[in-house]
Each structure stands twice: as C-alpha cells, then as structure tokens.
C-alpha cells in the first residue's frame, strides 16, 4: 500500500486535516476519508459536475483534483452552504421552485450557482445556462433549475 500524505485544509470554515494516498482524488478524500458525502460522484472524469466544490473561490470538479493538491486550500462543499439551520436563499429557491427530482446533481448545482451569483448577482437566463453547462441534470430538463437561480438572485438582491 502506498504511503499516505498528511494534508491540512480548511473545509466549510473549519480546519480539517486528513491522510490520503497520492492516487486518491479530493472527491474520494471528502467522501471516504472525511465523511462529507454530500459531494457526489457521477462520472469521475470531470464531465457531470455532481462533485463540484469551491476551492479558493473557484469552482472545480473534485474528482479531477488530487487530495494532496488540497494542501492549504480553503474548500466549500454543499455541507457548508446553509448558515447553521438557516438554508441559503439558493437552497430555499431550489425547494420552492421544485428544481430537483432525484437530487443527486443538486449539491453540484447549488455550489456552482452560488459561485455564479457571487460573481454576477443579476445574471441573464443565457448567463445562467452558460455557467451551469458543466453540471448535468437528467431529471428536470433544467427549466426549474434556471428559474430557481433567477429566483435566488432576486432574493439575494432584496436581502
């Protein structure tokens, strides 16, 4: 068995350190070593977006990042989006607009959409569709997801 590396990170605002093999992806480390299973695996080759996390302000597919590369990184996962027991406006908008069916892609969509609204608080429909094109959803046809992001943008602007 390969020797393990000691990795120190910040995840959802908390200091987290873990041991991982050099071949383990960040996705694997989050799920299997740290127990944060909200980040999902749909393809393990960067094409479905279900494992999207935010690293140092950039959204990435965590299956294409090695665990060891996360040394010193500030990582946000779906588990860190709500403020304690208060859901984020995006989470509320996804629920109230029925923007999920099976829900497996939802964590990735919420992480991606949150980064979009942080950069562009009032995106057009086209900008939303362009930004979310790296997240696949097979259930909804995207209509209600796009509307949920529009709704969340409105809520965040009114807040």
């Amino acid at each position: 068995m390969p020797a393990k590396t000691y990795v120190q990170t910040t995840i959802n605002g908390e200091h987290v350190d873990f041991l991982c093999e050099p071949r383990q992806s960040l996705l694997e480390c989050l799920r299997d070593e740290i127990g944060l299973t909200g980040t999902k695996e749909g393809c393990n080759d960067g094409n479905c977006g279900a494992c999207t996390v935010n690293i140092d302000g950039r959204i990435v597919t965590s299956c294409l990042v090695l665990g060891v590369e996360a040394e010193g990184a500030d990582i946000e996962t779906i588990e860190g989006v709500a403020d304690g027991s208060n859901l984020h406006p995006l989470q509320l908008a996804f629920l109230e607009n029925a923007a999920l069916q099976c829900g497996i892609c939802t964590p990735g969509f919420i992480i991606s959409s949150k980064a979009l609204l942080e950069q562009n608080p009032n995106p057009s429909e086209h900008e939303i569709r362009f930004w979310l094109a790296n997240n696949l959803c097979r259930c909804t046809g995207y209509d209600k997801i796009v509307r949920a992001v529009q709704d969340a943008a409105k809520r965040l602007q009114e807040a």
Binding site: T37, G38, K40, T77, L87, Q91, F94, L95, L100, T106
Partner: peptide, 13 residues
C-alpha cells in the same frame, strides 16, 4: 427537500 439541498440525504454510494 432539506436533506437533498444540504447534502445530507444518503444515496447508495
């Protein structure tokens, strides 16, 4: 809903 937008819902994997 809340479980599914917070990552707490337990899927097979």
């Amino acid at each position: 809903g809340a479980d599914k937008v917070t990552g707490r819902a337990i899927y097979g994997a």
